[in-house]
Simulated scan of single mutants.
Amino acid sequence: MTDYDLNHDGVTDAETHDYNGDGYSETTVYDRNEDGVADAVGVDSNADGYNDTVYYDDNEDGHVDGYSTDTNGNGVADTYHSV
């Protein structure tokens, strides 16, 4: 796991996880408002450096509110889904 303090205030804003040790992060967890609760989780399932799917918790209730997918692998979300 690698922690990132993007605004240099001493609080982790994002962390990446390389579960299989191949040098690529399979998941990235984002905490936009630094309250300790994950606001989004990105999944890079094919180790290309781009999140294939990002799950969002917009209202911070601990449940997924929606997700986006990059279906053609260009690093840009192509579809958005509400749940």
Results as ranks from 00 to 15, higher is better:
M1P: 01
M1H: 08
T2G: 08
T2V: 15
T2S: 07
Y4P: 03
Y4K: 08
D5Y: 11
D5R: 03
D5G: 01
L6R: 01
N7Q: 03
N7V: 00
N7K: 01
D9V: 00
D9S: 00
D9N: 02
G10I: 04
G10D: 03
V11M: 07
V11W: 01
V11H: 01
V11R: 01
T12L: 00
D13C: 00
D13E: 04
A14V: 10
A14S: 14
A14P: 00
E15Y: 09
E15I: 04
E15P: 01
T16C: 13
T16R: 13
H17C: 06
D18A: 06
D18S: 07
Y19W: 15
N20D: 14
N20E: 05
N20M: 12
D22C: 09
D22P: 06
D22N: 13
G23F: 07
Y24L: 05
Y24I: 10
Y24W: 10
S25L: 03
E26A: 03
T27E: 07
T27K: 12
T27G: 15
T28A: 10
T28W: 01
V29L: 03
V29S: 04
V29I: 11
V29P: 00
Y30T: 05
Y30I: 05
Y30V: 06
D31V: 09
D31Q: 11
D31R: 02
N33C: 12
N33K: 08
E34N: 15
V37T: 05
V37F: 06
D39F: 02
D39L: 02
A40I: 00
V41T: 13
G42R: 00
V43C: 15
V43Y: 15
V43L: 15
D44E: 06
N46K: 09
N46C: 11
N46Q: 14
A47H: 15
A47S: 15
G49A: 09
G49T: 07
Y50P: 04
Y50M: 06
D52H: 11
T53Q: 10
T53S: 09
V54A: 10
Y55L: 12
Y56I: 11
D57A: 05
D57R: 06
D58P: 07
N59T: 07
N59H: 12
N59Q: 13
N59V: 07
N59A: 13
E60A: 12
E60M: 09
D61L: 15
D61Q: 14
G62I: 03
G62S: 12
H63D: 12
H63S: 14
V64K: 05
D65S: 12
D65E: 14
D65T: 06
G66N: 04
G66A: 13
G66Y: 02
Y67E: 05
Y67P: 00
S68Q: 03
S68D: 11
S68F: 02
S68W: 01
T69Y: 07
T69M: 10
T69K: 10
D70G: 12
D70Y: 04
D70V: 10
D70R: 06
T71F: 07
T71C: 09
N74F: 10
N74G: 05
N74P: 05
N74C: 08
G75N: 09
V76H: 11
V76G: 06
V76C: 11
A77P: 00
D78Q: 06
T79W: 15
Y80T: 09
Y80E: 14
Y80F: 12
Y80P: 01
S82T: 14
V83N: 13
V83S: 11
V83R: 15
